[in-house]
Design a protein around this nucleic acid. Structure first.
Length: 442
DNA sequence: TCTGGGGTCCTAGGACCC
DNA sequence: TCTGGGGTCCTAGGACCC
C-alpha cells in the first residue's frame, strides 16, 4: 500500500471559530486581530475580497472596516485552542496516526486506506468535522507532507473540487504542478523565492525538476529536501508524539509606551510569571532567562535603545518567584536613567532556550533552591488558577491586573464560550405547534 | 623562507512557519 | 494614539581541545 498523508486545516480558522457561536457573522466580512489588536491575522473570503491583506496593521484598515461593515474581533486563543482540540478529536476517528501541526492544521496517515477510497473518506471527514464542530475545512492528500500541503492549497482555491484534492497519482499531479507558482510551496519564503527566480524557476514543476545537489548550494539542505518531497520521496516523517519543546518565550508589545523602570519591571514580572506557568504545565525548567526590552522602530525621530541580557540561575527551575526575581534583575542591571529625551519602550519579553525536564535536571551544589517548598507553593497556586481562572492567584510582585499601565489590548474579544461556565452561550427555545411533552405519570 | 589539521561545542543570525 | 507572538531548523564562524 502506498504512503498517503492528508493535510486538513480549518478555513479562516479563527474567523470560523467566531462564526460557530454567532450565525449573524455568516456571509459577512470578518477579521480577527493579533495580540494587542495589532494586525489582521485571519480573514474570511468576504474580507479578503475587500483587499484586506494578511498582517495588515489594524489602524491602517480601521476606516475601511468601518465603511464596509467588517466585523472585527480581538483574538480569543482560549476559544480557538478548545475548538482545535474538538476538531482533532474528530480526526482521530478517521485515522489512527495524527500529527497536530498547528492550531488549525493536522496531518493524518491514510496509508491504510485504499487509493480509490481516499477521496470519499476525505469528503466524509470534512462533513463530519463540519457537523460536529461547525468548522469548515479543506483536505489535501499526497505521498509526502509537502505534496499534501500543496494538494490542500489546490483544494482551497479550486471550488469545483469541493474542498478535497488528491495528488497521489503522478500523472495527474504533474498537470497541477505546472500551473502553481513556486512561492506557494511549503518552505519557500521570500528569500528562497528570489534565489529561485534567478535560477529561472517559476513553477512548482520547475522546482521539482531542479537537480537537488546544486539546489543545495542555493537553498541549503532544506531546499534539497523539498525537491525530493515534490518528487514523492518522503524526507519529513509524520511526528505523532510531539517533540519536547526546546525553548519558551513570553513577549508583548505595550498598549502604550513605557518610560518608567517600575512599569517595565512589572511587565517583565508578569511575563516571567506566565513563562513559569507554561514551564510547569510541561514539567520543564530552565537555568537562565534572557530579558529584553526595546523602543519601537516605528517611532521615527525618537532615541532608540535595545537591551537583551541573560540572567543565570543557580539551578534549573520553573518557580515563578525565582523567575520574577531574575526578570527584575535583568531590567535593574541594564536600566539607564532617562535624559531630557527619554527612551519610550514599546515591547519587552522573557525568553528561555535551554529547557530540560525538571526531574532530570541536576541540583546545585551551592545556592540550591528550595524545590520542595517552592514546588508545593507553585502547585497550590496552579491548582487555584486552573479552578478559578488564570490570574486568580498571582505573586504580589507580578502586579495586579488593575494596575497594569502597560497591559495588552483585547478590546473586541468574544466570550470564552466553551471553557468558562460564566461565558457559555444561552439558548432560548421557543415552543412551536407540535407534540406536547409531559412527564410520564406511570 | 617556514607557522597543522581535525574535531566538538556554542552562539548569532537568517529563514521560514502558523 | 495605533504596526503580533511563538516556535523550529540551518549555517557560519569563533573558541577550544588534542
Amino acid at each position: 500500500m502506498s504512503r498517503a498523508l492528508a493535510l486538513i486545516d480549518g478555513n479562516s480558522f479563527y474567523c470560523s471559530c467566531e462564526r460557530v457561536f454567532d450565525p449573524k457573522l455568516v456571509g459577512v466580512p470578518v477579521i480577527v486581530l493579533s495580540n494587542n489588536d495589532g494586525c489582521a491575522v485571519a480573514r474570511t473570503p468576504e474580507a479578503k475580497a475587500l483587499g484586506i491583506k494578511m498582517g495588515a496593521p489594524y489602524f491602517m484598515i480601521r476606516e475601511l472596516c468601518r465603511r464596509e461593515k467588517v466585523r472585527v474581533f480581538s483574538s480569543n486563543y482560549t476559544l480557538y485552542g478548545d475548538m482545535s482540540a474538538r476538531a482533532n478529536a474528530v480526526y482521530r476517528q478517521f485515522a489512527k496516526d495524527v500529527e497536530i501541526y498547528s492550531i488549525d492544521e493536522s496531518f493524518l496517515d491514510l496509508s491504510e486506506v485504499r487509493e480509490r477510497e481516499r477521496l470519499e473518506l476525505a469528503r466524509d471527514l470534512r462533513s463530519t468535522v463540519r457537523r460536529w464542530t461547525g468548522i469548515p475545512t479543506c483536505v489535501g492528500i499526497g505521498p509526502t507532507k509537502t505534496l499534501a500541503k500543496l494538494a490542500n492549497h489546490i483544494a482551497k482555491r479550486v471550488p469545483e473540487l469541493g474542498g478535497v484534492c488528491d495528488l497521489s497519482d503522478e500523472n495527474e499531479r504533474a498537470m497541477w504542478l505546472v500551473g502553481i507558482p513556486v512561492g506557494e510551496v511549503w518552505g519557500i519564503g521570500r528569500a528562497s523565492l528570489a534565489k529561485l527566480e534567478a535560477l529561472g524557476v517559476d513553477t512548482v514543476a520547475d522546482l521539482r525538476d531542479l537537480d537537488p545537489r546544486p539546489a543545495r548550494q542555493a537553498l541549503t539542505v532544506v531546499g534539497e529536501r523539498i525537491i525530493h518531497e515534490l518528487r514523492g520521496r518522503a524526507c519529513l516523517p509524520l511526528e505523532i508524539v510531539p517533540a519536547r519543546r526546546k525553548g519558551c518565550a513570553v513577549t508583548r508589545s505595550f498598549a502604550s509606551r513605557v518610560t518608567e523602570q517600575a512599569d517595565l519591571e512589572q511587565a517583565v514580572s508578569a511575563h516571567a510569571t506566565r513563562l513559569a506557568e507554561k514551564l510547569r504545565r510541561d514539567g520543564l525548567a530552565t537555568t537562565q532567562i534572557t530579558v529584553f526590552y526595546h523602543t519601537s522602530e516605528h517611532d521615527r525621530g525618537d532615541p532608540k535603545r535595545s537591551v537583551s541580557t541573560v540572567v543565570h540561575l543557580p539551578e534549573a527551575t520553573s518557580d515563578s518567584l525565582v523567575l520574577i526575581k531574575a526578570a527584575r534583575l535583568g531590567v535593574a542591571k541594564t536600566w539607564r536613567e532617562q535624559g531630557p529625551e527619554p527612551w519610550r519602550y514599546s515591547k519587552a519579553g522573557v525568553i528561555t532556550t535551554d529547557l530540560v525536564p525538571l526531574t532530570e535536571s541536576p541540583r546545585a551544589l551551592f545556592g540550591a533552591l528550595d524545590r520542595e517548598r517552592g514546588g508545593a507553593l507553585m502547585a497550590a497556586m496552579d491548582a487555584c488558577n486552573r479552578r478559578f481562572g488564570r490570574g486568580t492567584v498571582v505573586p504580589a510582585r507580578a502586579g495586579l491586573e488593575a494596575k497594569r499601565t502597560w497591559a495588552t489590548k483585547f478590546e473586541m474579544r468574544t466570550p470564552r464560550y466553551t471553557t468558562r461556565l460564566a461565558e457559555v452561550p444561552v439558548v432560548t427555545a421557543m415552543a412551536t405547534a407540535g407534540p406536547e411533552i409531559r412527564p410520564s405519570s406511570s
